[in-house]
Write a protein that binds this DNA or RNA. Structure first.
Lengths: 193, 193
DNA sequence: ACGAATTTTGCAACGTGTTCTAATCCTGCA
DNA sequence: TGCAGGATTAGAACACGTTGCAAAATTCGT
């Protein structure tokens, strides 16, 4: 099962979503197609699992070295910058993962919701200027209501920008730009410092 | 070609994205599969055309009866509310259209960009408290920089919320709620009036 | 009204996600 | 050691987006 995920990620890194042909994944991981479908209900499910691991990496990174900076704007922008950079280690993989989020069925919705909450928690922590507490319950109750609202909004912006990028609307750098601009708008009233 | 789009929309209204089987669309519109592919490069392309018509409806609606209200917050929330209500006339169709936006290839990206700009123009107009000028160039230069930034941010929130809804993350009403909350945060500093 | 160019048609074929099945391979227990 | 129950396999089969192609229908200039 580790092997399955690794094979899928390997293929996605090379050729993105379409390159993850489940027959190939099965071959590469020395597993029959049926077995693969026993572990993962669909292609999206499989890629979502990879995304889960990616988020875990981000969490670990932010616990070890929390976003620093005097202003909340700086800190939360840094979280998104790091998250984006992490994803962009392999743009093709990133595209595949984003797509998996965007087309999931209701089956996968639960996982997506979980991922959202985890990232939101990271942003709230950055706004609050504390290291994220991975042990805290995922009920979206950390931080103040305002902080949670800011985090939710920026998360939407980030996601939407990622989709836009993955579809070919704009280049890599623009993703973080969008988030930064929105964060400025919210936290600074829109002024450029 | 009208017939093609109508057939596709009809099927999408019943069963969403998956129900739009291009063979069925071809049958229903008395057209061969090959012809269909001459007009539309892909399933997404076809649905995006339907979305284009939906946006045109929204534009016409907002020109005839611009969003009213004393506060910018009120007006721009109303734009999103009307847009969402328009889409939700048929939730299945809405799901199909949202999905088409989220998975387009670079070929379709241009159209998506155009749609974005048109909606953004509508929001800027509402913020500015003038009826939208559909004749204005689509270069995203209407309104002040701040207004454009607000519109861009809220558009991201709306889109992301729509994707979340279409994937099964949350119910219909939540979509506008998300936008309203973000708009409050930006325009009112987050206070509930 | 004729012939050339273009469009449309009908249909077969391919790729890939997904499902199904019968055979085979464990694994743990008596 | 032998066996029951579950997991795994190989591979066929199905659905649907997409492509290709040769024949038929339509359009258009003259």
């Amino acid at each position: 099962m580790r092997r399955i995920v690794d094979a899928a990620v390997g293929l996605a890194e090379r050729g993105g979503f379409e390159a993850v042909r489940l027959r190939d994944v099965a071959d590469r991981s020395d597993v029959a197609l049926g077995t693969l479908y026993k572990y993962f209900r669909s292609k999206e499910d499989l890629l979502l699992f990879a995304l889960h691991e990616e988020v875990a990496r981000l969490e670990a990174d932010l616990v070890k070295r929390p976003a620093a900076g005097r202003a909340a704007l700086q800190r939360c922008t840094e979280v998104f910058a790091r998250a984006t950079r992490g994803l962009m280690r392999s743009p093709q993989l990133a595209r595949a993962l984003v797509r998996a989020m965007a087309v999931g069925d209701p089956d996968t919705a639960v996982q997506i919701a979980g991922l959202q909450l985890r990232i939101q928690r990271l942003i709230v922590a950055a706004l609050h200027d504390v290291p994220p507490d991975l042990g805290a319950p995922l009920d979206g109750n950390g931080g103040s209501a305002r902080e949670r609202q800011i985090a939710a909004t920026l998360l939407h912006v980030w996601f939407s920008a990622l989709v836009g990028w993955s579809v070919g609307l704009h280049p890599t750098e623009t993703v973080v730009e969008h988030v930064r601009n929105s964060a400025r708008l919210i936290l600074n009233g829109g002024k450029h410092e």
